[in-house]
Simulated scan of single mutants.
Amino acid sequence: MKAVVLTAYGDPATGLEFRELPEPASPGTGQVLVGVEYAPINFSDILVAQGLYPLHPELPSVIGNEGAGRVLKVGTGVNNVRVGDRVTLPIGSFTWRERMVVNAEGMVALPADADPQQLAMLSINPPSAHLLLETYVQLQSDEWIVINAANSAISRWIVSLAKQRGVKTLGLVRRAEAMSAAREAGCELVLLDDDNAPRKMVEALGEKRVRLALDAVSGEATGRLAKLLGPGGTLVSYAAQSFAAMVVSPFEVIFNDLTVRGFSLGNPAFSGQISSAIMQAATMVASGEIAIPVTATYRLEEIGAAIAHQARGGKVLLKVAD
């Protein structure tokens, strides 16, 4: 069986290897055997490979936090899915391999006519976007939120789900050439992530003030987000693409009474909301309401090239099934 294995923590380019592994055992009671079709290379996967994620498997180990495939065999007591159903795989179940046995509890059949590449990206970003919008601020219709890295895959989910609530999005991007992607994602206002953003926001929004800012970058970008929040606003850190420590002026926090929160999808408090968010996202994908641009796909044997491409940007998927 083909797989990608992490052999050492550190640089993903050298620590990840293509290998042939033994076939998994037959599914036991309450389990299913799934043939993986696609699995994305996410930021969280890179963190796992670098040893910076809370999940630290004993090495060598297959990794991969997300994916989708078809049920090949069901164990006794499984009645929620059947052979042939397409399903998402549990978060953190090490998906970068051709076949795997997983628990069937909570698993649901996905729309049969939906794009399998899109379905492979449903387990992390859509529920994260849902929870970011629902958990920290009770947003009202016609309010604005602000996000950075507005050209990213998760930003498309944030913007789409915000629109369903009547909420508008101000998207920040670090490069001028990324502004068109943020507009295509649906951001009502797109600005460069620089020191001019507060002035341009006021020019565009007038007296409207933002109560929720979502930070995917960290570093000095966090401080720029904080400057866009109104009094009593909340800033939520959910990723750190820059790998830098957050830099926020204490005066922004003190005089604007800002709240800074952290978000992790692995928080046990969120476990009961993830399945329904995935199913909502699957329905949106099947209807064509949203599609995440895929930059490239690579076979497992091409893991080195795939990791190099991911580092350059864009959404990269592993094409696991032949």
Rank of each mutant, 00 (worst) to 15 (best):
Q140P: 13
S152D: 14
F251W: 03
L139D: 10
V316S: 03
L205E: 10
I63S: 09
A129I: 14
L228Q: 06
L192V: 08
E289I: 11
V253T: 06
V36A: 00
T295C: 08
V48H: 03
L131F: 01
L205V: 02
L59A: 09
R165C: 00
D85Y: 02
L33Q: 08
G304N: 14
A306N: 11
V320N: 08
G84V: 14
V173A: 03
G51P: 00
V146D: 10
L33S: 03
L89A: 03
M201S: 04
R86C: 10
L192Y: 09
P90F: 07
I307Q: 03
L133G: 05
T222I: 07
T222F: 12
Q273R: 10
A39N: 02
R19W: 01
L47Q: 14
A296P: 12
A306G: 06
L33D: 14
Q138E: 10
A153D: 15
F263M: 05
S249M: 02
L205Y: 15
T297W: 14
V101M: 02
L55Q: 12
S26G: 08
T29S: 05
L265Q: 01
P293E: 10
T14C: 00
A112P: 15
P27R: 05
G69C: 13
G84I: 13
V137K: 02
S264F: 09
S93I: 06
S242Q: 11
V78S: 05
I274W: 00
Q140C: 09
L317R: 03
N125K: 06
A153T: 12
S160N: 14
S155C: 12
I278D: 01
G64L: 05
A178N: 10
V294R: 11
I46D: 04
S93Y: 08
N148S: 09
E98M: 00
E188I: 15
A182Q: 12
R209N: 11
A149P: 15
G35L: 01
P54E: 08
E98A: 07
P40N: 02
I158D: 09
R70V: 15
G30A: 09
R183G: 08
I290K: 05
G75T: 06
G262K: 04
D115Y: 11
V78I: 12
M121T: 15
A114L: 11
N151K: 07
I91D: 01
W144A: 08
A216K: 11
S237H: 13
A49L: 09
R165T: 02
A162M: 14
E20R: 07
D257P: 11
T169V: 11
V87W: 03
K208I: 02
V48N: 05
P40H: 06
K2W: 00
T76H: 06
A282W: 04
A162K: 10
Q50G: 15
M284N: 10
A129P: 15
P116V: 13
A39D: 02
N148P: 13
G304S: 11
L212G: 13
L300N: 14
Y238L: 04
A8Q: 10
I124H: 04
D195A: 06
V159S: 08
L119F: 13
P116M: 03
G69N: 07
V34I: 07
A178S: 14
G233A: 05
W96E: 03
V81Q: 12
K227E: 01
P231A: 06
L59N: 13
V36S: 00
A13V: 00
A182P: 15
I303P: 03
S160R: 11
I147E: 12
A178Y: 13
A109W: 15
L21N: 01
V316N: 07
